[in-house]
Design a protein around this nucleic acid. Structure first.
Lengths: 336, 336
DNA sequence: CGTGAGTGAGAAACCCTTTTCTCAAGGCAA
DNA sequence: TTGCCTTGAGAAAAGGGTTTCTCACTCACG
């Protein structure tokens, strides 16, 4: 099986000796550089394969000044957003032979500094900062590191590359979907006003209604918490009045879940009487709702992948457009 | 433009030259090895500090055969369990100067192999495997890697170190709490029977009742899905009969949430008439439930930390007890 | 004064790979 | 035959540290 060389690692000296050549020749044969007869090259390669030779990245990095590692900093240990982003980064970079150092720093500046120093000592080629909120920075200053930095789903300086989902476009898609379903009285039930995403989504909601010549009022946007309970409460408040909506765009899936449940308790048919659209495509919520939620997916894994690729371009010295990159969201149409 | 690596790194040669000594002496001064006058040692150290010298880990690893990195493999990109475990690992290891390579492998054996090979090439000192289910292994064989492996929250071979929460003890604590609240008719509403944790918790539930001389029947354990909906359904079924419980131990917090909501809809007082205990301490669920859920915390971050420390001991060649390590759970008492 | 022990520090080897420079040999034109 | 060019390959250095070995020197003792 694999991994038989458990004791002594095979080095390029072993390959060279077995092939009766120098390490220089062996190196060149394996890296497809230098000049030599194709017989020699093939023979060395065959022997390397037979011996199970795997070059020591550390030694290679020492001369190449490239470690093929990057550091990933996050302040999120529980959230559901970070993991897909990290998975995307890891997946996008492994294709380039790059491995990712995971560093969780909570909100602890000293811990963050320790991690950053450890990363730098290990000669990372670059750093990705990621977090739980796009309007809060990590507890450590990364702007004058000796390596490039990319920000994903966390606040970064204006002159850096920062990747976030395009909340406006996602919200627009959601509201347009409601309009396309023939809904005309559309409200927006969303989270706390001190989140930037709440502003973005609410603004896009209002603009989309306006563009469709539908009535839009400040009262159409209800701010609360990111919870099912708030969904319940908002429906209770709306149904207590006369001007009941026939379409509801929710700021996240939990609110939408609460909304759908509250409507069902009131015998209001979803989507017969009211259409509901959520945000996040948190599958455990969206798919379990009855009916399953139509919702906006932020494509976080893809966002992570793009962040990784952007960093690679910076590391390679290629030109990369600075500033905020807004990545498209996708509407996932289910039953609501 | 910052971060174009324009800075020249300070090497030990620079320090040695500035101090007028050889690199050997500089190395020994900085590592507190070898023999020299304390004036020399202090002077070299001071100069190193002034120059901002930071040793290149790569070069150091090349000779020391220790890279102070470990690989972390996970098959979970969405779950809520993995992130705290990873955070604990990262936190526990950074104290040892060890950084963690994050590798997400989904259920893809080839991807997993690529990641493992990349890790090995980068000379990781060890590997930690973690996942979403303690009864499913990762899609890659790790048992004859040339470095030690520790398993956390995923299935590992019998002869390895595997860390999992002590589900039995946690379940026992939950049921004992219900009994201490004066509850006597206690049922268990839990997840699908093909999860090992379902068996463990159900068994501990039954044993604890038995030990307290309370009635225990197979009908007292209701298996369903890990969803709020199932909590609702189970309550509906129970309250349709005559033998209604006064204590409910739920297999996870989502079920408990559904149970509490269903009870409230039925005007059953929690905890006035019925006490409910969940499992997981998923704060976003447990704290939002009305009343807030009393639940079992699996201390996943601590589990991760222990996994990291166990790996370090293996790497250092210290004796480590093999087999399944069951780490204690903690009952978090809230309002239910 | 000769001897031995202890001390402080440097030279050199080593870790593993890449890369530059050098060189011998052979082919070919003059 | 001489001289130049090409080709294939190796010697050596580099990369940034650590570690072993050696050595010169001082001091105390007999």
């Amino acid at each position: 099986m694999s991994g038989q060389g458990a004791f002594e690692r095979v080095t390029i000296y072993d390959v060279a000796a077995a092939a009766g050549v120098s390490t220089a020749t062996a190196s060149k044969a394996l890296n497809d550089t230098g000049r030599m007869s194709s017989e020699t090259r093939d023979r060395i390669r065959r022997i390397a394969r037979e011996l199970g030779f795997r070059p020591n990245s550390l030694a290679r990095s020492l001369t190449s000044k490239r470690s093929f590692t990057v550091g990933l900093l996050t302040d999120d240990t529980y959230g559901r957003f970070t993991l897909p982003v990290m998975a995307g980064i890891s997946e996008g970079l492994i294709d380039h032979g790059v491995s990712v150092f995971l560093c969780t720093v909570e909100d602890n500046p000293e811990l963050a500094k320790v991690h950053v120093d450890a990363m730098l000592d290990k000669q990372v080629d670059g750093v990705i900062a990621t977090g739980k909120r796009i309007d809060k920075p990590l507890p450590v200053e990364l702007s004058h590191l000796p390596v490039p930095v990319v920000y994903a789903l966390t606040a970064g300086p204006a002159e850096a590359v920062t990747l976030v989902p395009d909340d406006r476009q996602g919200a627009r898609a959601a509201v347009q979907h409601l309009i396309a379903q023939g809904r005309r009285r559309i409200v927006h039930i969303t989270g706390p006003g001190n989140f930037r995403v709440v502003h973005e989504r609410a603004r896009a909601y209002a603009e989309t209604l306006e563009a469709a010549h539908l009535p839009v009022s400040e009262a159409g946007t209800l701010r609360g918490s990111w919870s099912e309970r708030w969904g319940h409460e908002a429906v209770a408040a709306l149904w207590a009045g006369d001007d009941r909506p026939d379409g509801i765009f929710c700021g996240n899936d939990q609110i939408a879940r609460g909304v759908v449940d509250a409507l069902r308790e009131r015998q209001v048919g979803v989507p017969r009487d009211v259409s509901v659209v959520g945000f996040d495509n948190w599958e455990i919520v969206a798919e379990q709702t009855r009916p399953p939620l139509t919702t906006v997916d932020m494509n976080l894994k893809e966002l992570g992948r793009q962040a990784g690729l952007a960093l690679m371009r910076l590391v390679n010295g290629e030109a990369v457009e600075k500033g905020l990159w807004k990545l498209p969201c996708t509407l996932v149409v289910r039953g609501s």
